[in-house]
């Protein structure tokens, strides 16, 4: 259920999402976009990678899912994100999303919530980092 602004406090973390990466999903044409770096082991190795990597926006989708669950329709019509893909995600990885509220301010149309967010793998390292804002009406 979407969160009300009264329930939100700076420092609070929103509910995480956990995803298990598979080469089957990573290599689907809609995910890989015809880019062999996402499904071809030889191509990925020649590019200096240990294996095919997931397209970065898969992790953006995981973060967006977390934010949609927290903020509902407000996320879809007033959300903004700045996301950096800093480490590869491989098949077999478990990716967990995190979001922590860093700001809360009144606007003319609602309450603007700012968050730090990130994805990390079972290795305990962040793979995707960024910030988000959403105006909750």
């Amino acid at each position: 259920m979407p969160t009300t602004t009264e329930e939100l406090a700076i420092g609070q973390e929103i509910e995480p999402i956990v995803k298990h990466m598979t080469i089957e999903r990573m290599s689907r044409p809609l995910m890989a976009g015809g880019n062999p770096i996402h499904h071809d082991p030889a191509f990925a190795k020649n590019a200096g990678l240990q294996a095919p990597i997931a397209t970065g926006v898969m992790s953006s989708a995981f973060l967006s899912e977390m934010l949609t669950k927290a903020f509902g329709i407000d996320w879809m019509r007033s959300g903004s994100i700045d996301v950096k893909f800093i480490r590869p995600i491989y098949a077999g990885d478990t990716v967990t999303t995190h979001g922590r509220i860093t700001g809360k301010s009144e606007t003319s149309t609602g309450v603007c919530i700012a968050l730090d967010m990130w994805c990390e793998t079972q290795r305990g390292e962040p793979v995707t980092v960024g910030t988000a804002r959403v105006v909750v009406h």
Binding site: T55, S60, S80
Partner: peptide, 26 residues
Amino acid sequence: VAQHARLFKTKYITAGNVHIRHETQF
């Protein structure tokens, strides 16, 4: 957002691009 990746392909042959950042407003 993911469909924005198709734009370079409308004019160029590309392979091996790696997306590293996006700043998006919905």
